[in-house]
């Protein structure tokens, strides 16, 4: 039982990170109908730039909380700028092009960011200096660290904030209007270019924070780390219903839990025929089943492709 609870904890933390990243995919898809494949790489830039800033700040003798805050702030600014820049340079000129063109561009941007990062930070796995001393609590037989609790809490706060922003502020109204029909929203006096840029900014900032979380949680960062993470987060967004913000959150948490429980129990359930290496297979089987039964995803709405 304690092992089961431990797997739930693992899954919850992993899921919170997936959810934060999935939000970026789903917001951009909701508004532009574009799958921004470079979004996962923003997580990587967040982690690597955060690591560099953290090392620099600690080297300058700043205390850990301030250094960490600065690193997070720096990473958020950098990723935000990168996200807006990416939209302005690579996606805006293609706004009226066929759907396939921006998709391919997104793959190109992704490769560009990956190899740019490799040039700046090398292709090595970079280690977080051992500065984070986490305390471990025993909760119902499971080891829970303060870091894990902070990650989940921060993710929840960020997601709640985002929901509030979308549902209760003028900017949120503008975003929803642009999502429903960009042309009409433009006629109503909404600067849709600005709204789209802000959407990229928010998504990228969340990705940067997710990157910092991954860095602190696993203690390593690597120029290619955004690829698989991005793919999983995209899956989470589809699982929850792409275009739907609460869907991305639910999808992320679910995918984290499924992965954790699958790698923990698939071996036992199948008598060792399938081992923990099949966890991704099981995660995707769940995705396929959900999509067969509910093609729009768990919380997606059936009103056309732009939910």
């Amino acid at each position: 039982m304690d092992i089961f609870i431990q797997q739930l904890v693992n899954g919850l933390v992993l899921g919170s990170i997936y959810a934060l990243v999935a939000l970026g995919y789903t917001m951009v898809y909701g508004i532009l109908g574009l799958i921004n494949f470079a979004h996962g790489d923003l997580v990587m830039v967040g982690a690597l730039s955060g690591l560099a800033l953290l090392k620099g700040a600690l080297g300058a003798g700043l205390p850990l909380p301030i250094a960490l805050g600065l690193a997070a702030l720096g990473a958020v600014c950098l990723c935000g700028a990168l996200g807006v820049l990416m939209e302005r340079i690579a996606y805006r000129p293609l706004r009226r092009a066929p759907k396939l063109a921006p998709l391919i561009t997104a793959i190109g941007v992704s490769i560009l960011i990956e190899y740019g990062a490799a040039m700046i930070w090398s292709k090595q796995y970079l280690a977080l200096p051992p500065v984070i001393q986490s305390t471990t609590w025993q909760v119902a037989g499971a080891a829970v660290t303060d870091l894990q609790v902070s990650i989940v809490l921060l993710a929840l706060v960020l997601m709640a904030g985002l929901l509030w922003l979308i549902r209760a502020t003028p900017l949120g109204v503008a975003m929803r209007a642009t999502e429903q029909n960009a042309e009409v929203a433009g006629l109503m006096g909404i600067d849709t270019h600005r709204v789209i840029a802000i959407t990229f900014l928010i998504g990228s900032a969340l990705a940067a924070l997710a990157g910092i979380m991954v860095l602190l949680y696993y203690g390593v960062a690597h120029y290619f780390m955004g690829f698989m993470l991005g793919l999983k987060a995209f899956t989470a967004a589809v699982l929850g219903g792409i275009g739907s913000v609460p869907g991305a959150m639910l999808g992320g948490l679910l995918l984290g839990l499924i992965e954790s429980l699958a790698s923990g129990y698939v071996g036992d359930l199948t008598g060792g025929v399938f081992g923990s290496n099949y966890r991704d297979v099981f995660a995707f089987i769940v995705l396929i089943v959900v999509l067969v039964l509910r093609p729009v995803g768990l919380l997606g709405t059936a009103s056309g492709e732009r939910a």
């Binding site: 992965e259 071996g267 081992g275 966890r279």
Partner: peptide, 21 residues
Amino acid sequence: AREHTTDKDTDFKAILTSIKG
């Protein structure tokens, strides 16, 4: 226990947890 991961992964919490048991 005989567990498998890949040469790209960095998250081993789930397999380590099942090993812990």
